[in-house]
């Protein structure tokens, strides 16, 4: 069962790496989002996925029952999702602003920073 999960995560991570290697900023954004989803699954898997009672302390007891699920990976994944969401939102806004200012989302056409003080001619002047 773990092997199946591992393969599924590997497929998601592979697709996201392919997207990150793209030249299109929006595809890179999608790739990063997918990769953070894949890594959240890795955290889940490393906390052992088994069918267990939910990690809730029953009324009148003071500790978790012994067969309860491990609540820590869930807390970690929740934190990672929140952080990933905020970073994705920022990156989407950045992509939009880049498109508005530079008129392109193709990384080949974005070299304004690279040209400062460079001894080489700009990309568009090169043969």
């Amino acid at each position: 069962m773990h092997l199946l999960f591992a393969f599924a995560i590997a497929i998601v991570a592979g697709c996201s790496l392919y997207l990150i290697l793209s030249r299109h900023i929006v595809r890179i954004l999608l790739g990063v989002t997918m990769l953070s989803a894949a890594i959240n699954l890795v955290i889940f898997l490393s906390g052992r996925i088994v069918t267990n009672v939910p990690a809730v302390i029953r009324a009148g007891e003071s500790s978790l029952s012994a067969d309860a699920a491990n609540p820590l990976p869930q807390a970690l994944v929740l934190t990672a999702i929140v952080i990933g969401f905020s970073l994705t939102a920022f990156f989407a806004a950045l992509a939009l602003q880049t498109y508005r200012s530079l008129g392109s989302v193709d990384t080949r056409h974005i070299d304004a920073a690279e040209r400062l003080g460079s001894p080489f001619p700009a990309a568009k002047d090169r043969p």
């Binding site: 900023i25 890179i28 990063v32 970073l87 990156f91 200012s101 070299d111 304004a112």
Partner: peptide
């Protein structure tokens, strides 16, 4: 928000996001 800074931020963002992942 000038052109060079946006270019720089895109590069910075992608690689650093990847590193934290």
């Amino acid at each position: 928000r000038n052109r060079a800074r946006l270019d720089a931020t895109v590069r910075y963002a992608v690689l650093n996001l990847f590193s934290t992942l």
